[in-house]
Every structure is written in C-alpha cells, then in structure tokens.
C-alpha cells in the first residue's frame, strides 16, 4: 500500500513512474508562458522530496525544514553577490554541502531528543536562522535580501533567459538526477531500514541497528537535497529574500507533502504541482480565501484522507477493481 521497496518486492521502474517526466517535457513545449512557474514547481518537488525522506520514510517531524532550503538559497546568493562566484555548478555543490553540513550538525542535536522537545528544537533552530538572516545585514542583505544574483551560462552556452527556458530544463535535469538517487535509496536496504525505524523503532534497536546514527545519515542527506533546491530557487529567480527561511515556507512544504501523500516518492511530485498551480490561480485574486482554503484542506486531509491525493487514488482504484 503506502510502502514501496523492501526485500520482497521488485524495484523495476513502472510505466506510471515515467508519467511525471512526460508531463514535464510536454509542459516545456506546450506551456512556454508558464515556464517560470514550472521551474518553481520542479524546485518545490525537490524540496518536498527531501522532506519526505525524513518525515515519510524515517518519521521525524520537523517544523524547521525551511532552514536547509534557506541555507542553499543564501549560499548561492552570497557566492554570487559577495564573492563573485557565478558558476552554477559550483554554487550547486556549495549549497548542497552547506545544507548537508548544517543538517549533520543540527541533526546531531535534534535527533537525540523526541516528541515535543524535538519539534521545539526544529522550530527554535528555524527561528534562530531567520534572525541571523534578518540581522546579518553585511552578509545577507537583511530584510532586503540579495537582489542581482548572477549565474554564468550553463556549460558556457545556455544563458538563464527571463522567460525561463534554460532554468526550467536545468531544474528538470537536476530533479531527475536527485530523483534517480532517492529512488535507488528508497528501494535499497537503507530505505527498507528507514521504513523499519518509522514502523517500529524498538524493534530496530532489538535487531542491533544503531538508530540514532542511521537517522543522522538520512537527516544529512535530506538537508543536502533541500540545499540544492534552495540554490535552484536563487539561480532561477536571480535573487534571495528572507522568505526562504520563513515559517510559511516550512508550513507550505508540509502542506504540499501531506496533500500529495506522505511516505511515497510521488506524493512529493503531486502535492507541489497541485498546490502551486492552485496558488498561482487563486492566491492573488483571493488572498483571504486562499489561506482559509489551505487550512480547510489540511483539516480535510487529516480527518478524511490521511494518504493525501495519491492515497485517495489508491482507495478509489481499489474500489473500482473490486466492483
């Protein structure tokens, strides 16, 4: 059902798994005026995927995942604006490394605790980074952020144009590479082991697994991926603002994951797509109703559809097959 991978089941890429990539490629040709929204969706899929690794697979609840997105975003921004390093791949690697590094450091602390204390620590760390972003004017530009980020053309050829063609393809390729890695990981013994920790931590201890170290590994990987998403966000919008560190983003990404379906790779694909398209259509016209709608949606999901959209589809198709 919710679970994929493990020792019993095969790992071949199914037909349905090709679908998102076909849709993404079709969108490139058919919807040229929406490419910057498209790039944003791809970036948030990446970010949501990183959250799914720790929340959906390892069962760690965090209110501060925005920290890693923010770190990646500011890394790219600071490298370009303050250090004059405009190489896209250098920025990408630096963002991933800094995200992962900070993930390892904070994870070492956060993962020692549990329940409310853990939740509070993620919240407090997010708050502290927001404060740093806001007050370290000389580095982050404070409340104004860092406008005017420059990115060199990819391979010296493809320039980041303002309709976002290059940006879209670039994000798509990065997402594809990360997805491929994450998918392998989810189906590997490591992925099975993570599911084990989420399902029954006491049992994992009794099997001889050093649970804390394992969680630290996945937390670090997740933070690195979120960092990559942050770099992409800066590179495609050519600016960084404080909002990348905000609770709104940490909340949004949770909503997107829940909406799509937790603990299944493609929940992270469906959620951000639906959420961001709806946001683009509705949020500017009806700002009040938008946040009401998001809140209401969360209630619906919690009380009626814990599996999110993909969970619903599973249920419906199971019913259709029965009848």
């Amino acid at each position: 059902m919710m679970h994929s991978g493990g020792y019993a089941r095969g790992s071949r890429i199914g037909v349905l798994e090709i679908l998102p990539w076909l849709v993404a490629i079709a969108a490139f040709f058919l919807l040229p005026e929406y490419l910057s929204l498209g790039a944003r969706i791809l970036i948030f899929i990446l970010f949501t995927l990183s959250l799914d690794l720790i929340l959906g697979y390892a069962g760690i609840i965090t209110l501060g995942h925005s920290v890693f997105l923010g770190l990646g975003a500011y890394t790219a921004g600071i490298l370009s604006v303050k250090a004059g390093i405009h190489d896209p791949f250098l920025q990408l690697i630096a963002g991933a490394a800094i995200g992962a590094g900070f993930g390892a450091i904070t994870g070492a602390v956060v993962l020692r605790t549990k329940d409310l204390t853990q939740l509070m620590l993620t919240l407090a760390i997010a708050a502290i980074m927001m404060e740093v972003g806001n007050k370290a004017n000389w580095l982050t530009g404070g409340a104004d952020g860092l406008p005017g980020v420059q990115v060199n053309p990819l391979f010296g050829v493809f320039e980041f144009d303002f309709i976002g063609k290059t940006g879209y393809v670039y994000c798509l390729v990065v997402l594809f590479i990360v997805w491929f890695f994450v998918r392998r990981m989810v189906y590997s013994p490591f992925g099975a082991m993570l599911t084990g920790i989420r399902e029954n931590t006491a049992r994992m201890h009794a099997l001889g697994a050093p649970v804390y170290k394992r969680l630290l590994v996945v937390y670090t990987i997740s933070a690195g991926i979120a960092g990559i998403a942050g770099v992409l966000l800066t590179q495609t919008t050519q600016s960084v603002g404080l909002n990348v560190l905000s609770f709104e983003i940490a909340g949004d990404v949770l909503v997107m994951l829940i909406l799509g379906g937790v603990g299944r790779i493609y929940g992270a694909f469906v959620g951000p797509t639906v959420y961001l398209i709806a946001h683009d259509e509705l949020a500017k016209q009806f700002p009040e109703y938008w946040s009401f709608g998001v809140g209401f949606l969360l209630l619906i999901v919690v009380f009626f559809a814990r599996g999110g959209i993909l969970g619903l589809i599973d249920k419906i198709s199971a019913r259709v097959r029965k009848s």
């Binding site: 020792y7 790992s11 990981m185 590997s188 013994p189 490591f190 082991m193 394992r214």
Partner: peptide, 10 residues
C-alpha cells in the same frame, strides 16, 4: 548491509 543505498534490497 543496512547502510547500502544503491542496489535494490530485493
């Protein structure tokens, strides 16, 4: 082998 991330468990 629980830390191996590449080859599928199956």
């Amino acid at each position: 082998v629980a830390l191996r991330m590449w080859k599928p468990a199956s």
